[in-house]
Structures are given as C-alpha cells and as structure tokens.
Design a protein around this nucleic acid. Structure first.
Lengths: 167, 167
DNA sequence: GGTATTTAGTAGGACGTCCTAGTAGTTTGG
DNA sequence: CCAAACTACTAGGACGTCCTACTAAATACC
C-alpha cells in the first residue's frame, strides 16, 4: 500500500498552498482531500487484511450485520438501509457471499418480493476470525488515541446526520 | 443522495453498541465506519455538483493539479504521485478527460516512455466554473466550523503520514 | 557497446459504488 | 374485487479503484 518512494512533502499541504492563491475555502478543500485519501488508505489496509479470509470490507460489514440480527438473517432491503448502500450494491455483495458459502438466499416467507439473506455457520466462523485480525490491526488506525478516534466520529457525525442518514 | 426514509437511529451508533458486546476496539470500529460513510456522502455530493460540468471529483482533481503546474502539463506518472492513485487509475482518468477535450496527450519530448498530459483552454475554463460551484457548496462539508475542519485534517494527517504518503 | 534492470504507460479484469430500467409481488382505493 | 400505485429485487452499464501482466524506452553495468 505504501508508495514506493514517499514524496518529500505532503501533497495535500502543497496543493492547499496553491489552492489558497486562487480560490477560497482552503480549509474545506484540505479537509475533503484528507478525508478522501485517508479513506483510501484505510480501506486498502482493511481489504488487504481481509483478503486472507477471501473477504472485502464491504462483505465483512454485511456479515457482521447479519450476526447482529436476531435470527442471523435479514431481507436485502433492510441490509441496504443499515449498511447505507444502494440496493443494487447489496445484491452484488450478497451474490459473492453466497458464492463463497457464507450466506444463503431464500425467498421471504411472508413477502414474495423479498429475499432473506441468512449467514451460515461458515460465515459466522469467518467473521470471528476476520474480526480478530482487524481488531489486532487496530482497524488500520495506527497510533490514533481514543481521544482522536472520538474526535473523528464527533466531527463526522453531524455530516452524516445532515445527509439524512438518520434522524 | 439522502435516504428516502432516514432511519430512526444512527446505524453506526447502533452497530457499535452491538459490537461492544462481542468484540473490542469499539472506538476504532466506530471511527472507521464513520470515515467510510462520510467519504461516501461527501464524494456523492461532490460528484453530483460536478455532474453538471460533465466531471467527477477524480477528474476534477486531475484538472486542478494541471492548473497548478508551471506549464499546465505533467507526465502521467507525476500525476499519479501527486494524486496518490495507482498509475492505471491515471490512465483511466486522463483518457476520459481527453475524450472531453479538457486535456491533450502528447509524447514526452525528453522521454519516449512518458506521456505528457496538458490542460486545454476549455479545461482551464471548466475548472474555474466547477471550482466556483464546489466552493459555493462548501465542498459538501455543510456546517463544519473551521475549527472542526482543521481537526479533521489534524487527526488524519498522521494516518496519511504513517501510510508512507510523504516524509 | 551490449545486455540486464528499471521505469512509464497500457491492456484486461475484479470489485464496490451508483444509476436507470424492468419484473414480479403487495398494498391501496375506488 | 380489480386496477393503480408502490415496493423488493435484478439486469446491465458507467466510473474509479486496485492488481497482474505486458510493451517499449531509458539507464546501469559490465
């Protein structure tokens, strides 16, 4: 994941300097660029860890969600709501999980339109193993203090809220 | 972008509650999930704004980078370094920019392997217009104070640093 | 100088994300 | 009770990201 040759300067810092000479909203630009890059770094590391289990972070999240449900199963639509992704993304994720034998797809007993996704025993075991690895790796958030982690969440919370994720 | 029906609770908060009952690293998990979701929200809004200009944020960033260069041109490899993306991503981005007439691709005069990407007049004009829109929209970071924006950057900086982005 | 290695970029493919469109069930309202 | 509206999901495609080859050119090293 790490660049072969790290730049001798922070590219975002450098860009924000140039940005400031022409346009406004320097702090916003810098924050957004940071956010993008940090997300890219983190998901790269997480996917790297999960690759050893044949997973991606998206699929891992789906499995975790299922383990949190009472019966270990949810309709795809509910999964999309909780994971905050588009319905078609859920279809894609679940298709791959099913192919790996980690979930099963059955028609919903009470609603002919819906599909129930249920985690298998193999899925539950894999979640445990994968989670252990992620926790051991600090979720790729090396060196951030609990203070900083809370700050990150606190700063981003109103952003998520105003985007209409929840009320 | 906004969900049709926002959940009556914060899905990340809810997940972290359940997570805490089984596994550790609750703060990390919550921070990571926040980061992922916030990035998704922000890039969604930015792409939405840029769609009016026939751009995406990735392509916008590439154009901005070119306007920051002395001659308005850079070899693809340099662009990848500065944008912190894989070489093949640069190829993809530049191909689309070229198709839109926003950049030209010419062989590098001093290095037969390299390709020089140069922004066109149309490209420069588009960057100005698109930037104005993004700035007007606060880069989709509605309501975050300068304090919070700085905090975001500050918290994420060491993460980027330790990933080897720069030294 | 001539070969070996490194470097720049492209080709093709996997994945996750979104979108639009379409199908098949369910619910609503007259 | 039947048609209209809505809902759950799938199909197919665009985009950006990464990866693994692969080609061609430049550089290093005998």
């Amino acid at each position: 994941m790490a660049r072969k040759k790290p730049l001798p300067f922070d590219p975002i810092d450098e860009a924000s300097r140039q940005w400031g000479r022409r346009w406004g909203a320097v702090e916003q630009m810098r924050a957004v660029t940071s956010l993008m890059r940090a997300q890219q770094i983190v998901i790269g590391e997480l996917d790297d860890i999960l690759k050893n289990h044949g997973l991606t972070f998206a699929r891992f999240e789906a499995l975790v969600l299922l383990t949190f449900s009472r019966r270990g199963s949810l309709p795809l639509g509910k999964m999309g709501e909780r994971l905050q992704v588009h319905p078609t993304s859920v279809t894609s994720i679940v298709r791959r999980l099913e192919a790996a034998g980690l979930v099963t797809r059955t028609p919903h007993p009470d609603d002919g339109r819906a599909v129930l996704c249920e985690i298998t025993t193999a899925g539950r075991e894999l979640v445990e193993a994968a989670t252990a690895d992620l926790v051991a790796a600090d979720f790729a958030l090396h060196g951030l203090t609990d203070e900083q982690l809370k700050m990150l969440w606190t700063v981003l919370e109103p952003l998520r809220h105003s985007a209409g994720d929840f009320s």
